[in-house]
Design a protein around this nucleic acid. Structure first.
Length: 153
DNA sequence: GCCAACGTTGGC
DNA sequence: GCCAACGTTGGC
């Protein structure tokens, strides 16, 4: 089993939105970056746990945990001309974008903020705190996961 | 709203 | 294949 961090803008889709989806969870669609796509398609497995990260908000940081309940399948939004995520070059025979299904697992009582993460020497190698890393899907090592869980109040 | 740090597109 | 122009992300 592996660990991940998924970013989401809380104004668009927050941890509370995921919680309200219950056991059926949410399709993690709209990822349109090849590096992130490759991780979703090739490495994210059912049962993996995911730090849910709120970006572009007052206090950016990890707010809870999601669980992968279905491995990546072709992202339906790429075929939908009405969708913001429509990709005219993608076809059902040759899909370009993939998405997993995730469900709510836990919400932290308080956010583990980006600021805290940056100030933690043990996490200096974490992809999230590296300069310029804008990927919305990031790997988290076992050691990083354990360490961050220890920071949760 | 600004802007650094990317990623993508397309002309050549 | 290069690279300028453009678009996006996301912290601040």
């Amino acid at each position: 089993m592996a660990y991940w961090l998924f970013k989401s803008e809380p104004d668009t889709f927050s941890i509370d939105d995921l919680k309200s989806r219950g056991a059926k969870g949410e399709t993690w669609d709209g990822v349109r970056n090849y590096q992130a796509r490759n991780m979703l398609r090739d490495e994210v497995k059912k049962g993996d746990l995911v730090f849910f990260y709120h970006s572009n908000c007052e206090v950016p940081g990890i707010v809870g945990i999601a669980e992968v309940i279905k491995e990546a399948f072709p992202d339906p939004s790429q075929f939908n001309p009405e969708s913001n995520y429509f990709d005219p070059k993608a076809t059902p025979d040759n899909p370009r974008w993939f998405c997993p299904q995730v469900k709510f697992h836990a919400k932290f009582k308080s956010t583990v903020s980006l600021e805290q993460l940056k100030q933690t020497p043990a996490l200096a190698d974490m992809a999230l705190v590296r300069k310029g890393n804008r990927l919305s899907i990031l790997p988290v090592s076992d050691a990083q996961w354990t360490f961050i869980m220890g920071m949760v109040k």
